[in-house]
Amino acid sequence: MNTETQPPSPRERFYRRERQSVPAARAFTREALAELAVRERAYDIVLCVSELATNALVHGVPPGRGFLLRLLPLPCGGVRVEVHDSGDGDPAVPQTRAREWDEGGRGLLLVSELADKWGVGERDPGKFVWCEFAW
């Protein structure tokens, strides 16, 4: 089999709706990036995973469900992050500025600033939020 024509294999893991899922997703991402020999922008990627996983748990994962984190190497160099959940809604960057003392409201703003691209895709049920980092 010619490995040069094979697409890079994704790294993925499913997380239940639990508080410890976000730090576990960050740890998994750091391990996967190390396995993929990703050094460039690793901090930004882990931060975006943290924000997207938190958003999935707070807004997108109904009780008894979970979310899927998928990391896909990009063929031209880079990484695509996807967080799949079964909730509804259409995530968007807030149009109003979060106040300094607000606990939330900055997650997608951070993702939009750190990632090269980001967006939302449909799935049945739910959605997935993705972002890409190229180098």
Rank of each mutant, 00 (worst) to 15 (best):
N2A: 10
T3Q: 09
T3C: 08
E4F: 07
Q6D: 09
P8W: 02
P10T: 09
R11W: 13
E12Y: 04
E12P: 02
R13Y: 07
E18G: 14
R19Y: 14
A24S: 14
A24P: 10
A25D: 12
A27P: 06
F28L: 13
T29K: 03
R30A: 12
R30L: 14
R30C: 10
E31G: 13
A32E: 05
R41F: 04
R41I: 00
A42I: 05
Y43E: 07
V46F: 01
C48L: 01
C48R: 01
V49Y: 03
L52I: 01
L52S: 06
A53N: 06
T54K: 06
H59S: 07
G60L: 05
P62A: 15
P62E: 15
R65M: 07
G66S: 11
R70E: 04
G78F: 00
V79A: 04
V79S: 01
R80Y: 04
V81A: 02
V83T: 00
S86M: 12
G87K: 03
D88H: 12
G89M: 05
A92Q: 07
P94E: 12
Q95A: 15
Q95L: 15
T96N: 11
R97C: 14
R97T: 15
A98K: 12
W101H: 15
E103W: 15
G105S: 08
G105F: 11
R106W: 13
R106I: 15
G107S: 10
L109N: 09
